[in-house]
Amino acid sequence: MELQNKVAVVTGGASGLGRAACDQLAAAGVKVAIFDLNEELAQEAVQALGPDKVRYQRVDVSDEQSVATAIADTVDVFGAIHLCVNCAGIGSAGKVLNRDNEPLPLAAFEKTLAVNLTGTFNVARLAAAQMAKNPPQGEAGERGVIINTASIAAYEGQMGQCAYAASKGGIVGLTLPMARDLATLGIRVNTIAPGIMGTPLMRAAPQQVQDNLVAAIQFPKRMGLPAEFGSLVVHIASNTYLNGETLRLDGGIRMQAR
Score class of each variant (00 low, 15 high):
Met1Phe: 12
Glu2His: 10
Leu3Trp: 03
Asn5Ala: 09
Val7Lys: 01
Val9Gly: 11
Thr11Ile: 01
Ala14Trp: 00
Ala20Val: 01
Leu25Met: 04
Leu25Cys: 08
Gly29Glu: 01
Lys31Trp: 00
Val32Tyr: 08
Val32Cys: 11
Ala33Asp: 05
Ile34Lys: 07
Phe35Asn: 04
Glu40Phe: 13
Leu41Val: 05
Glu44His: 11
Glu44Asp: 15
Glu44Arg: 14
Ala45Thr: 12
Val46Tyr: 06
Gly50Gln: 04
Val59Pro: 04
Asp60Gly: 10
Val67Ile: 03
Ala68Gly: 03
Ala70Asn: 00
Ile71Ser: 01
Thr74His: 05
Thr74Asp: 04
Cys84Leu: 12
Lys95Phe: 12
Lys95Asp: 15
Asp100Met: 05
Glu102Met: 05
Glu102Ser: 06
Ala107Leu: 01
Phe109Ala: 08
Asn116Leu: 07
Leu117Gly: 08
Ala128Met: 05
Ala129Gly: 15
Met131Ser: 09
Lys133Trp: 12
Asn134Cys: 11
Gly141Tyr: 02
Gly144Pro: 01
Val145Ile: 08
Ile146Ala: 10
Ala153Gly: 10
Gln158Ala: 15
Tyr164Ser: 14
Lys168Glu: 09
Gly170Ala: 07
Ala183Glu: 11
Ala183Tyr: 09
Thr184Arg: 13
Gly186Ala: 13
Gly186Val: 07
Ile192Ser: 07
Ile192Thr: 07
Gly195Asp: 02
Gly198Thr: 02
Leu201Trp: 07
Arg203His: 14
Ala204Trp: 05
Ala205Gln: 15
Gln207Trp: 03
Gln210Arg: 14
Ala215Gly: 11
Arg222Asn: 12
Glu228Leu: 08
Ala237Met: 02
Ser238His: 05
Asn243Arg: 00
Glu245Trp: 04
Arg248Tyr: 09
Asp250Ile: 02
Asp250His: 10
Gly251Ser: 02
Ile253Val: 15
Ile253Lys: 00
Ala257Asn: 05
